[in-house]
């Protein structure tokens, strides 16, 4: 592990953009980690939900854009409904995903791959949801 020089800056472009898209104030979070404690999608995450907000507070947006976490989030809103600080993290996760897929050619779900991904017991609604979440 190397020492990184971090200058927390919430006025930097990416952070402002995320705040704009999500309409959430990341400074409201006091790191109680209630979001992580109740998250049902935790197993596919490399960065825990409360760490996501902490990294945003520290201005480390790049780490988040390259994480597995933002794609593992199921948008179930459990975190949002229990957050004592009224921070809707699922909206922040959505904002982070949009930051990635809004760049041209970065759709997470490629149309040609869909037939391979299809499973017999998967409802068709799953495809629609997948497009909503992974495609610009």
């Amino acid at each position: 592990m190397s020492r990184e020089k971090i200058t927390p800056d919430i006025t930097q472009k990416e952070t402002v953009k995320i705040s704009e898209i999500s309409e959430e104030n990341i400074l409201d979070c006091l790191q109680c980690s209630k979001c992580t404690a109740g998250c049902p999608a935790i197993h596919g995450m490399d960065i825990l939900p409360h760490q996501v907000i902490r990294l945003l507070q520290l201005g480390q947006v790049d780490k988040l854009l390259n994480s597995e976490t933002i794609w593992s989030c199921a948008s179930c809103f459990t975190c949002a409904s229990r957050c004592p600080r009224d921070v809707d993290i699922s909206k922040l996760m959505e904002a982070l995903r949009l930051m990635v897929i809004r760049v041209k050619g970065s759709n997470k779900l490629k149309v040609e791959k869909i037939p391979k991904l299809l499973q017999k017991n998967m409802p068709q609604q799953g495809i629609v949801s997948g497009f909503r979440k992974y495609v610009k």
């Binding site: 109680c32 980690s33 209630k34 992580t36 404690a37 109740g38 998250c39 459990t78 229990r82």
Partner: peptide, 10 residues
Amino acid sequence: VNYIKGMVGK
């Protein structure tokens, strides 16, 4: 006593 910095989800 085990002090755990964190919260209970459910």
